[in-house]
Design a protein around this nucleic acid. Sequence first.
DNA 1: CTATTGACAATAATGATTATCCTTTGATAA
DNA 2: TTATCAAAGGATAATCATTATTGTCAATAG
Lengths: 166, 166
Amino acid sequence: MKNINASGLKMTPQRVAILEYLHGNTDHPSAEDIYREIGKKYPMMSFATVYKTIETLKNRGELLELTIDPARRRYDPDTRHHHHLICVECKKIVDIYEDFQISVPEDHACSFEMIGNHIEFYGMCPECKKRKEPDLWENSPVTSAEQQKREGANRNSVLPAVNKTL
Amino acid sequence: MKNINASGLKMTPQRVAILEYLHGNTDHPSAEDIYREIGKKYPMMSFATVYKTIETLKNRGELLELTIDPARRRYDPDTRHHHHLICVECKKIVDIYEDFQISVPEDHACSFEMIGNHIEFYGMCPECKKRKEPDLWENSPVTSAEQQKREGANRNSVLPAVNKTL
DNA sequence: CTATTGACAATAATGATTATCCTTTGATAA
DNA sequence: TTATCAAAGGATAATCATTATTGTCAATAG
């Protein structure tokens, strides 16, 4: 928490704010999420600064860029090897720390030098599941207003069609 | 080959061209790839038509949208469940048909209703590997021109930082 | 034959991300 | 402590992928 970084990175109030926001964060925020949240405390922060800091952290290997959400890039400050479970409905992302022992058999690997892997699990979170099954709750009148208010997540993005596979 | 689709989708020359291009294609092309390639035969085709056709096919479950490449969406006409191996250097994507038996343990699944999964493997293809190891070939003078000409793939995109994890 | 519908092309609009340009500031060493 | 200077910030323009809009055309239903 204190010396968030020590190695040759010039510390500025903006960076401290971003690093503090990111530290321990498991929300997988987008650049806009970061900008909006930090803007509450530091309204003078520029969007460009957010992007530039993200770029710097990425290059230093301190921040991962997730491509799960086709509509925007999301970031994960936990650089340990892990996987992700995404709700196809509200796009909530949950970390999965299970160590799956998967590897491509030699004959399928096309002589690639393997570097790593990342698993995307698709599912529906309990909240969305309940909301999508009004059958169980009689003909519960779900207003469109209610449909919107799902904690920040529900943007206008299409989900990765991979979901539609199965 | 003739009536490429039978179920209520109006066939037009543009759609036939797109479907023919996609049929059996394993290049995982982007919208622009499709537009550019088909434009060779039908120069009057609009980019909007490509996007709309993609959208239609996606909704019909005949085309998968891949989110592996953060810079652009790529499409896969093979809707069978399979995974992908991407070259972190030239972004070439190879299909992996191995059936990995992975599942998130109950206690990690956060009560999600599981729908499916998709594995992204990262690696370096033989071509890029050789190009990146001039050590083995004396101090071979790799011109930047040579670096460019790698078959169409090498765009200006950053690779998913997940790669940098390993 | 005319109305309707879906698809097309052209093009404008949007949204995320990157680049530019100039000012400010943190870290270092005199 | 202060001078210095490259690195970082802010404002904003530019770019790139994608989506939306609008008017036209063609095939088909009535």
